[in-house]
């Protein structure tokens, strides 16, 4: 028995799924291509499944040393996230619990620094890195990325800290907890979910960061974003291998991203949309 409301629901299902599939199609196509052979991958008429194999994945590691670039990505994104948290937690704590007249202005000003395209400071950063020997080092990239996400991290932590009741921290202070103990024993455990989603977002953003990776690294410290870009030269064009490398490069972040989609909006809109 098909009632008008079920047929409406079926229609919506059809529509919703078609839209989703069209949007996700390039990614799905890429994963499929990574399982084909090179000749199939460039054929004019797309093959679906002829012989599926994982050869490309093996080849990417053997020929291009994929894992070395992946390790750079891991070090840079997790390292810069950690550094940004270390700097951001005290800052957000101060702003959330001891606001001064200028706190709001400082927060908005930090946001405004993100408005400036990175390229605006490319010249001084590049020269600074050249003179201090930080060009093409993981440390250098880690530092720049950490500074780049710091405003986002502080903002996000600030909105989470705001939700912790002040009374709890005050009670702790009454019992003789100093600021360090207050933060470590009370604030951090209470806002753990917020800190976790902040870290997730920071890892996602730094993992995908491409501007500084492409301009400040060449080979030794190049993370995955730069590694994939090296496939753009005409002589390096192997679609199936490119797809395999790309699939491996985005897979971990795709999983993290899907896991954190609820907090993502809040984090990226600086708490304006919850």
């Amino acid at each position: 028995m098909i009632t008008p409301s079920t047929s409406r629901k079926l229609l919506l299902t059809l529509l919703g799924w078609s839209v989703a599939l069209v949007i996700a199609f390039p990614v799905i196509w890429m994963v499929l291509t990574s399982l084909k052979s090179e000749t199939e991958a460039i054929s004019r008429v797309p093959h679906l499944f002829t012989h599926v194999s994982l050869n490309n994945y093996v080849a990417v590691q053997e020929q291009a040393k994929y894992l070395r670039f992946a390790w750079n990505s891991v070090v840079v994104s997790f390292g810069s996230t950690l550094l940004a948290l270390l700097l951001g937690i005290p800052a957000a704590y101060a702003m959330a619990f001891m606001p001064t007249r200028r706190t709001r202005g400082t927060l908005l000003w930090m946001l405004s620094t993100k408005m400036m395209p990175s390229v605006g400071v490319l010249v001084p950063v590049y020269l600074l890195f050249r003179d201090t020997g930080l060009l093409d080092t993981r440390t250098g990239l880690l530092l720049v990325d950490a500074l780049g996400i710091l405003p986002v991290v502080i903002w996000m932590l600030y909105t989470f800290f705001k939700e912790v009741p002040r009374e709890v921290l005050e009670a702790g202070r009454m019992d003789g907890a100093g600021p360090l103990r207050e933060v470590y024993n009370l604030l951090l455990p209470l806002s753990m979910p917020g800190i976790v989603s902040t870290s997730l977002l920071a890892v996602i953003l730094t993992w995908n960061e491409a501007f500084w990776s492409l301009t400040l690294t060449t080979s030794r410290a190049a993370p995955l974003t730069a590694f994939i870009a090296s496939f753009s030269s005409p002589e390096g064009l192997f679609y199936a291998k490119l797809s395999a490398a790309s699939t491996m490069a985005i897979a971990p972040i795709l999983v993290l991203g899907w896991a954190s989609q609820k907090q993502l909006v809040r984090g990226l809109t600086f708490g304006a949309v919850k």
Binding site: P26, I204, T225
Partner: peptide, 10 residues
């Protein structure tokens, strides 16, 4: 969540 270099080449 796809990194910009991947989506551009894709």
């Amino acid at each position: 969540f796809v990194m910009p270099t991947v989506s551009a080449l894709l």
